[in-house]
Write a protein that binds this DNA or RNA. Sequence first.
DNA 1: ATTTTATATCGCAATATTACGATGATTTAA
DNA 2: TTAAATCATCGTAATATTGCGATATAAAAT
Lengths: 109, 109
Amino acid sequence: MGLTKTEIFTEEQNKLASLLKAMAHPARIAILQQIIAANACICGDLVEELGLAQATISQHLKELKNAGIIQGTIEGVKVCYCIEPKAWALLESQLGNFLTSYKKSESCC
Amino acid sequence: MGLTKTEIFTEEQNKLASLLKAMAHPARIAILQQIIAANACICGDLVEELGLAQATISQHLKELKNAGIIQGTIEGVKVCYCIEPKAWALLESQLGNFLTSYKKSESCC
DNA sequence: ATTTTATATCGCAATATTACGATGATTTAA
DNA sequence: TTAAATCATCGTAATATTGCGATATAAAAT
C-alpha cells in the first residue's frame, strides 16, 4: 500500500489535508514566514536565509506552488514568490471553522 | 537522506510543523471532526464510521496521540478519545498568529 | 477458566518524503 | 558569443508514511 484512500473522504477533508500537508514542514513554514515578513515578493534569497541546499529549497517551493499556496513570477534572472491570496483565504476560513468547532467541555476525560 | 533537518529551525517552527503534520491526513481530519462533533469522548466507533481497517484507525489515533492532539482513557474494554484542550489551544494561537500575519497587499505579483 | 469484545502492536509491501549533488535551462552582463 | 547568475529538474540514497492482515493484550461476560 502506501497510498491514501482519498475516495472515502469528502472533498473538503482531502483539500484541507493537502493544504496542511504542504505547510507541515519546518522549512516550508520558514519559507512562508519569510515571504509574509517581506510583505512582498521574495526573490529567493531563501537559500542563504535557511540552511538548506538550493535544490532542496526549490523543491519545497514547488510543493507550496503545487498546493496553490504561493505563486512565482519570473523577474529577469530571478523568480519572485508571493502568497496566493485565494488559497490563504481558503485556509483561514476552513481551518478557522475547524479549529473553532471545538469548544472545551467539562463532560470529558 | 530522507530526514528533516530540525536543528536549523526554531522550536516554534518545528512544533507547529509537527502539529500540522499530525492533522495533515484526511482520515485524521475525519477522526478529529467526529470527536469534536460528539462533543465528548468517542469510544472508538470510528472503524465503522470511516472506511478503514481497525489496524489503520488505531495507527492514526496513535499519531494524533503522539502529537498530543488527543488523549485516550481506558473505559472498560473500550478506549475513549477526546481532544487535548492545551494542544488545541496552542494550535489555535500559533496557527491563528501565523495565518493572520499575512495581509493581502497590492504591491505584489 | 474460557470466551467474547475492543484495541494495540507487529510485520510487511507499496509508495511518498527529504535532502543534495549534478546537470539543464534561461536571462542578464561582459 | 561567452560567461555569470538564478532557478528548475533529474537521479539517487535514506528514511517515513499508509494500509492491512495477523496476532497480541486486556477487560468483561459467560
